[in-house]
Design a binder for these strands. Structure first.
Length: 1149
RNA sequence: AGAUCCGUAGCUCAGCCUGGUUAGAGCACUACACUGAUAAUGUAGGGGUCACCAGUUCAAAUCUGGUCGGGUCUACCA
């Protein structure tokens, strides 16, 4: 502080010389740091201001400097979740980035060093699919129509396609993040760290290969991980053709009891499926061992043939109407609607175990020979027992196709029924299935004339007396997050990370993370961890991080590579051991690109000297982003110290949809690699919906373009709106009207306040060069606003510290609007433009300046542009800070000694009293310009009188009355009301409260005043019991002053003397006249300091009013002369209190 | 089906944690004022079964349980 004051001493004369030179030699030059006038605006144009500020930031390297100025300071670590730049950014990106930015800016202002490395997610399905669409190819064409090398080159070119748009948005929205040195996930360095991570996991035994039934997207040609399946929007309600198929039981010793009951007719097991395409692969039927089943005699509703069917007892009424029970089976005719039916027998599921049935759809491909060719000894087509069977849907008998369901696979393995996968990886039936061969099981190719094979299968079953019910069934079914096509469950070889082995630790460490809101962490994320399954890493694609594992052909030996150096050494070794052409391309320079196809060309050698090939899989892109804490620094190959300093993150923030995505992969890798959390605080923001609460989608056309929004309303207004409208984690209904409101109400008010300050400070040449006037020498209102300001600083700081920016923003808004603009400035206006430049005026300037500067610093994290503009404009004149941006200085700290609770309280009284008096004026229809004599305020105690007395001048000036009169406690004059102080009495009285309340409400005026005098009172509550009340346990308020019209709010009551004496009328005339002249001054475009002369022709009572108040009028309107004449020809016609006048207003000089 | 968030004025939201007696604000609407800050402001008015039901309590928008509606997420539902 001291240094800057010293600086001022010599800067001021220099500045004078400088400006003299500039004006005389007409040098057009505006130093950003120096000015002798506060910049005044013509209009509030936020977008234009922002453009200027952006240019300045760029010119001055403001972002870089904001980190440099904290060199050596304690770091605050932030991780940027990498966006994928192959799509356009949307408005929902603006909210999470605003959140990230404001926290980082705030922490910088708190003195931390906050590095923010940007990043790009560049691998994976979205990019590949985009490229395929562009080239008009499918996955099968890769390696045929286009080489893998060329394909990957195309991907590499496509990944940063919209980088410019993203950078543009980042810049324009004021998001400070390092775009010059971002981490890019496809670089060798990045991949090398990923390999290092994988090898660490491998060495810990956490990486393994296994066959399992996994979600698989035929359209995308790859398996999906559980968290990919858990992206929003993947589960969708779809209508599928479902079928209840009839599996014909084979007669045997064990099934005899069924045939006995059925009178030796055919017996069928009913099994339901929503995926009829799995029926040809059926190898078993699973029943619940303890579920009750029944054999029902009835007719097939399609073929009308008599049948006997088995299904769960509790599901009988799902298929049969009660009226049909025991109906006449003999008389059934095909045209009757009601199916007659009859339960023949009942039994437990376990009695069905091992019963055989006939193949439903016999073809070459699902013959016993074909099955046993894959699984020797397999014994398919039997009834199995499984615990997973429920009776909530279907028939209680589960059609089991081991290839297409995890449960099916498990139970099938147990009973050794074999496995048939009669659908290939493209999603079409294999050969050997008759008319269904090579047909797609779902419309994966967007064929215009696609015919649903599921329908055809169902029709076939119907015709063959093998379907009992076929209908459209609506259920939620997972879809591939990129292709939007339905996923199937499919047996795949895959590499897994054994996340389940670390579940306990992950759960434990999760409890140390500060989640905003808490429920995301405990609920959504916590549940996810509890139910976690192993992480399926494998992807059968081309553009991604290759799995660095090489294996011998028989799988007996394998090697996991953890660095480029290691790979190059192994390359050489293999070449030497294996000889021939092995790895010849890679011997000289080593490997130059870690992607396909190059890594696949590399052959390594096993310990026993056998060649090893790379496992063909790529890894899940989510591993890329989850490993960014390490890979962004190329750890451990470089930057070890930087990494140590930047792990774990203090703070991350993304949309809540990342809970199972990035939040999870970061956490999982942090725990598994370093036994640490990866982030200490995680803020998850909600979705951005349109103004009607619908999700934004291109299809509905309700998306909001962030560029247009910022261009039109400015980034600051947009940011402020996004942050203050709702808590970040609540869903936001985005409405442009809301931004307009913010712009008008908050920014408009702040702008007006600044503008007002600048206008008069420029007139008076206020530059804060005078000594700081001690608080005790400033008037009441200054001390009040400064006290409120400190309270504001405290609350805003607390809110920001608690990651509650919404609270912070709303507090600032309220202060600027309610306190600063609508009370302080309004009441102090005259201090700025009246009188000489002396102590009181300087105090006013200093106070308003301090408020403005502080507010600007408080709001800077949320509103970086406008705050910086105002800061620079203020500081350019006063030079109080040597920093050149608000984002380089420190956040304000509250001056506790400025806080005066009593003062804030009595100002509240003044505001209430003024408001009440204005409302009384309104009731009596007397305008504020008409002075009134007095207002009466009953005071309940000495403190209240004292308090009011101190703000008396403010009230009288504000509501234009001559005096306040206090009515002290004279019995009979003020009517008082008493009621219990519920809060205080509740605990003490409990059930007696009602009685006391009744007693108090029946108090007479006399009893109330007795109570007040004594300070206590004993109240009878029946049965000779009494309750002793203290004065603090009741609330006494004045309710009425007999004979007066009153208004009250809480304990405050006001009466207004509405007698208007002739003298008051004259004064009112004078004030009205001043108002008219001021309007003329303004309309004529006079400067606020111009002196004028006025001639008035008044032929009525007004002239005497004007004569009487001549001096007052002249002072107000800056007139040197007010001349009253009887008549003038020209002049402006005005009206003063219904009297017409003519005036001529002339500027002097 | 389960988890979670939400439901307060026409709209956007406070208040709920810690129960207290007229449930607030802004926007919008209407009328009247004020103003040398003017795309601002004040006063007044209309507008609420605090989603519903039950419980706890002297007292419930607030605490508890349930129901309904909406969002998001989960699930190996054949």
């Amino acid at each position: 502080m001291k240094a800057s004051i010293n600086t001022n001493d010599w800067v001021l004369p220099l500045r004078a010389i400088f400006s003299y030179l500039c004006s005389h030699f007409q040098i057009k030059f505006r130093s950003p740091l120096m000015a002798n006038r506060y910049k005044e605006f013509k209009h509030l144009n936020l977008p234009a201001i922002e453009k200027e500020v952006l240019q300045r930031w760029e010119r001055e390297n403001a972002f870089k400097k904001s980190i440099e100025v904290r060199e050596g300071a304690e770091p605050f670590v932030f991780y940027e979740g990498p966006p994928s730049a192959n799509g356009m950014p949307g408005i929902h990106h603006v909210i999470s980035r605003t959140l990230k930015d404001l926290v980082c800016r705030y922490k910088t202002m708190q003195g931390y060093k906050v590095q923010r490395k940007g990043g790009w997610d560049t691998h994976g399905l979205p990019i590949e699919l985009g490229v395929e669409k562009e080239l008009g190819i499918t996955k099968e064409d890769i390696g045929k129509k286009i080489s893998v090398a060329e394909y990957n080159q195309k991907c590499r070119e496509a990944v940063l396609r919209y980088k410019d748009k993203w950078d543009d948005l980042t810049t324009k929205m004021g998001y400070w993040v390092d775009l010059e040195h971002p981490y890019v996930t496809f670089t060798n360095e990045y991949i090398e760290t990923l390999w290092w991570c994988l090898k660490e996991l491998y060495n810990k035994g956490l990486l393994y290969k296994s066959v399992s039934i996994q979600p698989y997207s035929p359209a995308a040609g790859t398996g999906l991980s559980s968290h990919e399946l858990n992206q929003p929007g993947t589960y969708r309600n779809v209508k599928d053709t479902s079928a209840v198929a009839m599996f014909k039981a084979v007669k045997s010793g064990r099934s005899q009891f069924l045939f006995d009951a059925a009178g030796d007719d055919e017996v069928f097991f009913l099994a339901w499926t929503t995926t009829p395409w799995t029926l040809p692969s059926n190898l078993g039927l699973t029943v619940g061992p303890n579920i009750d089943y029944v054999l029902v005699k009835t007719f097939n509703p399609y073929t009308h043939l008599p049948v006997n069917v088995v299904l769960a007892k509790s599901l009988v009424n799902r298929y049969f109407k009660p009226e049909g029970e025991n109906g006449d089976l003999e008389e059934y005719s095909p045209d009757q609607k009601l199916l007659p039916w009859k339960i023949l027998t009942e039994f437990k599921g376990k009695e069905l175990e091992g019963l055989e049935y006939e193949r439903l759809l016999p073809y070459e491909a699902n013959s016993l020979e074909a099955i046993q060719a894959i699984t020797p000894d397999a014994q398919p087509f039997r009834v199995l027992l499984g615990d997973f069977v429920t009776t909530e849907d279907g028939t209680g008998i589960v059609h089991t196709a081991p290839a297409f369901g995890a449960d099916d696979y498990k139970v099938g393995k147990k009973y050794n029924i074999g496995i048939l996968t009669l659908v290939d990886r493209e999603g079409k039936f294999v050969d050997g299935l008759g008319e269904f061969s090579r047909r797609f099981i779902k419309d994966y190719k967007n064929e215009p004339d696609y015919v649903d094979v599921n329908v055809d299968i169902s029709v076939k079953l119907k015709k063959e007396n093998r379907a009992f019910k076929v209908e459209k069934y609506e259920h939620s079914y997972p879809h591939c997050w990129r292709t939007d096509k339905p996923v199937v469950y499919y047996p795949l070889d895959a590499w897994f990370i054994k996340t389940t082995a670390k579940r306990e630790r992950m759960v434990e460490l999760n409890k140390t993370i500060n989640w905003k809101p808490e429920s995301t962490g405990t609920g959504r994320f916590g549940n996810w961890l509890e139910n976690m399954v192993d992480w399926n890493l494998s992807r059968s694609r081309y553009w991604g991080t290759p799995l660095p594992i090489w294996r011998t052909e028989d799988g007996s030996e394998e090697k996991c590579i953890g660095s480029i150096e290691e790979l190059n050494a192994e390359i050489k070794k293999a070449s030497q051991v294996l000889g021939g052409d092995v790895n010849t391309h890679y011997l000289h320079d080593g490997i130059l690109d870690l992607h396909k196809p190059y890594v696949d060309e590399v052959i390594l050698v096993s310990e026993s000297g056998k060649p090893m090939k790379r496992e063909p899989d790529l890894i899940d892109v989510w591993f890329d982003s989850g490993a960014m804490p390490y890979a962004q620094w190329h750890f451990p190959f470089e930057n070890k110290e930087i990494f140590q300093e930047n792990f774990p993150a203090d703070f991350i923030a993304e949309g809540v949809d990342q809970t199972r995505g990035w939040f999870y992969t970061l956490h999982a890798l942090g725990v598994m690699l370093f036994d640490s959390v990866a982030y200490k605080t995680c803020v998850s923001n909600g979705l951005v919906l349109d103004k009607n609460g619908n999700k934004m989608s291109k299809r509905l056309g309700n998306v909001v373009d962030p560029f247009q929004t910022i261009e039109k309303f400015g980034a600051d207004a947009t940011r402020w709106y996004l942050i203050t409208n709702a808590s970040p984690w609540d869903n936001l209904k985005f409405d442009l009207e809301g931004i307009k409101e913010v712009q008008r109400k908050f920014f408009g008010t702040l702008y007006n306040t600044y503008q007002f300050f600048a206008l008069y400070a420029n007139v008076d040449r206020f530059s804060f060069k005078e000594a700081y006037i001690p608080l005790e020498e400033r008037p009441e209102i200054d001390r009040w606003i400064l006290s409120s300001l400190q309270t504001l600083i405290k609350k805003v700081t607390a809110a920001f510290n608690d990651y509650e920016p919404t609270q912070a923003g709303r507090l600032i808004e309220d202060f600027v609007d309610e306190h600063l603009s609508n009370w302080y400035v309004r009441l102090c206006r005259r201090r700025f433009w009246k009188g000489e430049y002396e102590q009181d005026k300087i105090a006013a300037y200093q106070t308003l300046y301090e408020c403005l500067e502080t507010v600007v610093r408080l709001m800077a994290p949320i509103s970086p542009f406008f705050s910086d503009e105002l800061f620079i404009n203020l500081n350019a004149v006063t030079q109080k800070h040597k920093e050149e941006s608000v984002h380089h200085i420190l956040f304000p700290t509250p001056k506790e000694e400025y806080i005066d609770i009593l003062l804030e309280e009595r100002m509240g009284l003044a505001q209430d009293a003024s408001s009440l008096i204005l409302s009384l004026r309104k009731k009596a229809n007397i305008k504020v310009r008409q002075p009134l004599q007095k207002a009466l305020i009953p005071v309940l105690n000495p403190l209240m009188e004292q308090q009011l007395h101190k703000v008396e001048d403010l009230i009288t000036a504000e509501v234009n009355i001559k005096e306040l009169e206090y009515l002290s406690d004279t019995e009979g004059f003020i009517k008082k009301k008493i009621k219990p102080n519920f809060g205080a009495l509740g605990k003490k009285l409990g059930p007696l409260m009602k009685a006391v309340n009744t007693a108090l409400s029946n108090f007479s005026q006399h009893e109330i005043s007795l109570f007040e005098k004594e300070g206590r009172y004993s109240i009878p509550v029946g049965n000779d019991e009494f309750v002793d009340l203290a004065l603090s346990e009741v609330e006494i308020s004045s309710e009425d002053i007999p004979g007066w019209t009153v208004a009250s709010k809480g304990p405050l009551t006001v009466a207004l003397d509405i007698n208007i004496t002739p003298e008051l009328i004259q004064e009112g005339d004078a004030r009205e006249f001043v108002n008219r002249i001021q309007k003329i001054r303004k309309d004529s475009g006079f400067d606020v300091t111009d002196r004028i002369e006025v001639k008035v022709a008044a032929n009525n009572g007004i002239s005497s009013s004007l004569a009487k108040y001549n001096d007052y009028i002249c002072a107000e309107i800056l007139a040197d002369k007010l001349e009253l004449t009887s008549n003038i020809d020209e002049g402006t016609e005005i009206e003063v209190n219904d009297n017409p006048l003519k005036v001529i207003v002339l500027k002097k000089g």
